[in-house]
Design a protein around this nucleic acid. Structure first.
Lengths: 240, 240
DNA sequence: CGCATACTTGACGTCATTCAAACCGTGTGG
DNA sequence: CCACACGGTTTGAATGACGTCAAGTATGCG
């Protein structure tokens, strides 16, 4: 067995987990591991031949930069997530590491060949693409929501769900994966508004802030009612 | 050859176009054609066993209803588009016909089997899912944009690109596929604001309104600069 | 200790929403 | 034919929310 794959923390959850051991070893010959420091870019919008990758550890953001320089975060990638546009001639968006990350990268041609060779891999990527689509639609639903307070409450709710290992109930305490500025970019707000709404939520008794990024849920029910959501979502965007 | 498929207007562009004639005929045995009147619902959020479908003619919208009753349009489906969540236990969003539409529907179990049987179909759906993902991200980018005028200008620009048959340049005159209210739901604005911004764009000399839904592009360059986009997008979200 | 970075807080202006009324094209019934 | 109601749209005035600008407060690092 490929030694890198043998110790891979996402070997049972990534797209390649649907392959047999031999198939995976063959695919691994074409892959390369890569480390990214926080803030480092995997590829930029406009890059051709941008690689594809499975995220092994850490976190990535997919973002678009407007002509006026403002950034809009379009997606967060968690471990076992797959990143890369398989059929576009070049990348449409930037992909940047939110924290120090490890990836398993593949050249586009190698992935294209693997998809042809291993139908199970194509199905696994199809499933992942549909989950990404759902997650993006949930974010769009959130961004279309009128109130800034709703958006922040919903985002915190999702983070709490993502931070919980069971993913079926909320983590009571967790660290925000994003800075205030990144939260603002994600929700289409400003840093100041995000900060103020954090204050409002704390004042309302829904949450408590522990340092810059620590969050403790005081009243999850209240947070949920402020967010205007009936259902919660795990990191794959599926309802729980 | 299956008579329905033989005369199907999207037989060369839908997902099933990657199949051989025999394969397509076999798949067609499991499919059903269905017509929807404007406003009729294909399936609602929460439906289990929601069918999958290829849109043959007309237009659909995918939308989410918030707990406060407001609607957010998440996607538009054009002919040859595929609709349906293949791996979710039930539908997460409503799908409604914007105009009288014809579809080719399949039960989930039949599609699942076809994906297993025909690897090319899985790859075609993977490609389509990635295109949908890109289109949704573009809409998200648009919704995250600050100004209402930018959003409307960008949406009109996309509609003009979608209305053009060449899809590489803009249609000079076209009919809006959406009512003011639907545009508002898509952009996260109110009907009144949309109406006012139409007025602004006309006043600025970028467009002219012909009746309720007719639009004529007077200054496409101006529209594009107002939208703040460097690039235009066709209906698949690919840059042109 | 000094500086840099991130976050918070306040005052003010702008822009989208809200509520309200008027408008227009269409269809219906007298 | 006209009167009327109805849905979709436009327009107006006032409110309020978010953005902007600016100052102030941590927290960490050299």
């Amino acid at each position: 067995m490929n030694p890198t794959c043998a110790s891979c923390p996402v070997r049972d959850s990534a797209a390649c987990s649907v392959l047999t051991e031999e198939e995976r070893d063959t695919l691994a010959l074409a892959g390369h591991t890569r480390s990214l420091k926080r803030g480092e870019m995997l590829f930029a919008a406009g890059d051709d031949q941008a690689a594809c990758a499975t995220l092994v550890s850490g976190a990535l953001k997919v973002s678009a930069i407007s002509s006026d320089g403002s950034e809009q975060i379009l997606a967060l990638i968690h471990p076992a997530g797959f990143i890369g546009e398989l059929f576009a001639p070049y990348a449409h968006h930037d992909v940047v590491a939110l924290t120090d990350s490890k990836l398993c990268t593949f050249a586009r041609t190698d992935i294209d060949r693997a998809i042809e060779t291993y139908p199970a891999l194509a199905r696994a990527l199809l499933r992942r693409a549909q989950e990404d689509l759902l997650a993006t639609r949930n974010l769009l639903e959130l961004a279309g929501n009128a109130s800034a307070e709703c958006r922040l409450a919903a985002l915190l709710h999702d983070f709490a769900a993502a931070a919980s290992d069971s993913s079926c109930n909320l983590a009571r305490k967790f660290e925000l994966p994003l800075s205030r500025g990144e939260i603002a970019d994600m929700l289409g707000l400003t840093i100041e508004t995000v900060s103020r709404k954090f204050g409002k939520l704390e004042e309302a008794g829904a949450i408590a802030r522990k340092g810059k990024r620590g969050i403790e849920l005081i009243e999850p029910k209240l947070l949920q009612s402020i967010s205007g959501r009936q259902f919660a979502l795990n990191e794959h965007g599926t309802v729980i």
